[in-house]
């Protein structure tokens, strides 16, 4: 389901691999990203460029991943379209996740913070 790319030695970009991150696939998304974390990844960028919609399950999965990372690393998001951005705002998740325009901006910011 997910697709990953390494950008810097410690930064992994994750693309969910679905157009809609919803109740049908959010559990698998969470499990696959947590498997990455358990495999050692701790600086994650979730790229939503190809995700047109996410529901509360998708947000819940994202929160679960963030909690799993805890203080060991960081998780940011990028590529949010207007609908996904609005969903983050409605649920106040814009206060939880740092959001960047695209992968390059997210990776640069994350690299500078390491």
């Amino acid at each position: 389901m997910i697709h990953t790319s390494k950008y810097a030695p410690h930064i992994v970009v994750v693309r969910p691999g679905v157009e809609r991150l919803t109740a049908i696939n959010s559990k698998a998304f969470k499990e696959e990203v947590i498997a990455l974390i358990e495999g050692g990844a701790s600086q994650l960028v979730i790229d939503f460029k190809e995700v047109s919609f996410l529901d509360s399950s998708g947000l819940g999965a994202l929160t679960g991943v963030l909690k799993r990372i805890g203080h060991r690393g960081d998780l940011v998001v990028c590529g949010l379209n207007s609908d996904v951005t609005q969903m983050f705002k409605i649920c106040r998740m814009d206060r939880v996740f740092k959001s960047y325009l695209d992968v390059d901006a997210a990776v640069q910011a994350m690299s500078e913070s390491l």
Binding site: S56, S57, G60, T63, C91, V96
Partner: peptide
């Protein structure tokens, strides 16, 4: 905000 469910 850190809850994984309960928003729907």
């Amino acid at each position: 905000v850190m809850a994984e469910s309960g928003r729907g």
